[in-house]
Write a protein that binds this DNA or RNA. Sequence first.
DNA 1: CGCATCCAAATCGCATACAATACGCTTCTT
DNA 2: AAGAAGCGTATTGTATGCGATTTGGATGCG
Lengths: 246, 246
Amino acid sequence: MPNQMSAKASGAHRAEPKGSRAQSVYRAIRRAIIEQALRPGMKLPEDSIGEQLGVSRTLVREALGRLSVEGLVELKPNKGASVAYPTLEEARDVFDVRRSLERLVVQSLAGRLTAQQVTTLETHVRLEDEAQGRDGPESIRLAGEFHILLSEMTGNALLDRYVQEVSSRCSLILALYGRPHSSECAVSEHRQLIEALKRGDAEEAMAVMDHHLEAVAARAVLAPRNSADIRDLLAPFARKEGLKSS
Amino acid sequence: MPNQMSAKASGAHRAEPKGSRAQSVYRAIRRAIIEQALRPGMKLPEDSIGEQLGVSRTLVREALGRLSVEGLVELKPNKGASVAYPTLEEARDVFDVRRSLERLVVQSLAGRLTAQQVTTLETHVRLEDEAQGRDGPESIRLAGEFHILLSEMTGNALLDRYVQEVSSRCSLILALYGRPHSSECAVSEHRQLIEALKRGDAEEAMAVMDHHLEAVAARAVLAPRNSADIRDLLAPFARKEGLKSS
DNA sequence: CGCATCCAAATCGCATACAATACGCTTCTT
DNA sequence: AAGAAGCGTATTGTATGCGATTTGGATGCG
């Protein structure tokens, strides 16, 4: 006798069961991490998650394995999974790779955007503008999606996958080390980028993107100006004691 | 009644069972693909593989899932797994990303190599030299490992993982589209690269690497000069009929 | 003789069952 | 009472079983 149809049918808005259920589980956990419902360092027992999602450990395990490959989850043998808690070094590494990849994105795109694509991008930026002041989380999500939109437009599936991965990890990193209410991406920089891409000015576009990501990284990784490592080292213990450090 | 201890104990040299068995299965399949024991397009039924390796379908499934994420196997829902058969477009995409990543590698490394590391690299190149004429497969493997060696030296785990991934896929691609006996990497170019890195000349190093990878790509992706697509389209049918096209 | 339909074998998707390991707690010893 | 050893529980690692989906082929009909 199957046991599901409790968790799934309960929620307010039913997400379409796109693809296999394994995929759904993967996306659910992934999203929970990115949106910080699951905070870095948190334990992820297979049983509880499976129960909550209405699936068996098998699928949860599969999802966790994949998330571990992608760096969102740490998977220690015989000790189980937990939400990744990236170090400052790892954070820097991720940003370095991201800059490199996004350089390729704009290089591929410069002068090759269709009118359709330009419209899509400009519409998106307008959305960002509207969400600017109010609703922090929404604004952050939109800013991230702009970059993913760009990578999708390259038509390079591998590049797209990598950009999505580093974007996810950047979300985690910003959650950990970002300044409280920095709007992550300046909308004006996105506009600049679109303009450069339209003109086909690859050099300018890459420069803008580089500067843009540099700024994001600076707001985050370098945020703890002095005693950066101290904060890094102390946070886990604070959590263990039940003290919220943020 | 367990059935193993047949496949594992049979081989000539017993590989150390580093890490979990799941990991071993993953590496076994991965290696089989890269070394072309499993050719592109070949079906990969969970049962047979598990039986051959002395493990259950569970672990095989896990490995195949991961390999699918990495692009070495194709995983079609309800149809099973098969060794990836990259198209020319995908091949080009992979090479594009690879160039971008390796640019970052040499940029990170320029002027920062320790004496130890330089020695390691020079030793490796000498090995390549020796394996040059004779023993094709060995030569190809060494050439690939040179790049992985470099990425490891950056200390950037993410970058390293990505480079390893694209390297694997490049092996597949070269197997499909590469000219028969092209030595893949010119050893002299590797030497040039080391020299530039020692001098700390990042620009020169990136230029060399770019040129180097361009050459590799040209030997492969552009190899089928005319009627490229015809060869591409015909190959699968040839295999199905038991006709060796190469 | 060609074509559609139905059936059976193979294979996958997922859940469950069992084995192994790690952790915390009690208890025994000194 | 403090420390060590043994045990019980909780959680992970792996195998197996059952239902679902696809595939190749046999059968019957036009």
